[in-house]
């Protein structure tokens, strides 16, 4: 008798893959906005998977940062550039065929490798960690303080760079 979490996993995993596929290769629309919408759905479903893995803090961050900030940025740029042309262009069948072939080969390699690997005995209940905010925060500010600070600098640099790049006259 399958457990409830297992059913939940298969449901969410199916959603993630479906929405992901629709993001990149939607047979009905090639509008970037559609892709962006399906990307949001993919990300939200992924957050669900994170919850299943008891990574509650990351699930929250995933929704906040990706579905919130990043996707807003995407949509904003799509609007800014007013991209409609994509709809009139057809995918080139040659590229489609060769690209798909390569990806299928990749999937083949991946799956054979993963299925061959024996699952280890580490999946023992009770030793599983909980990804809650307090534990993660403690870890972050104790063991990973320096990378954390460097990352904040990176964000600052990215901000400055973006402003410079998008300024109209760089003279």
């Amino acid at each position: 008798m399958p457990q409830f979490t297992d059913i939940l996993f298969f449901g969410l995993a199916g959603l993630v893959l479906l929405f992901g596929l629709l993001t990149v290769a939607n047979p009905f629309s090639r509008n970037p906005v559609t892709s962006a919408m399906f990307l949001v759905l993919t990300i939200v479903s992924l957050a669900g998977l994170y919850v299943l893995l008891h990574a509650f803090f990351l699930a929250a961050i995933q929704v906040l940062v990706y579905a919130g900030a990043v996707m807003v940025l995407f949509l904003f740029v799509i609007m800014l550039l007013d991209l409609k042309e994509e709809e009139h262009r057809r995918l080139k069948s040659g590229i489609l065929a060769v690209g798909s072939l390569a990806v299928v080969a990749f999937v083949g390699i991946l799956l054979t490798t993963l299925l061959k690997a024996k699952p280890t005995a580490s999946a023992v209940a009770g030793r599983l960690v909980e990804g809650d905010t307090v534990k993660l925060g403690t870890l972050l500010f104790e063991n990973w303080l320096l990378p954390f600070e460097i990352l904040s600098v990176l964000l600052l640099v990215a901000m400055v760079g973006v402003i410079l790049l998008t300024k109209k006259d760089l003279k």
């Binding site: 990149v24 740029v77 799509i78 994509e86 995918l91 590229i95 489609l96 690209g99 390569a102």
Partner: peptide, 8 residues
């Protein structure tokens, strides 16, 4: 590999 729109 297959899409041509930079944003996608």
């Amino acid at each position: 590999v297959i899409r041509r729109n930079l944003i996608v």
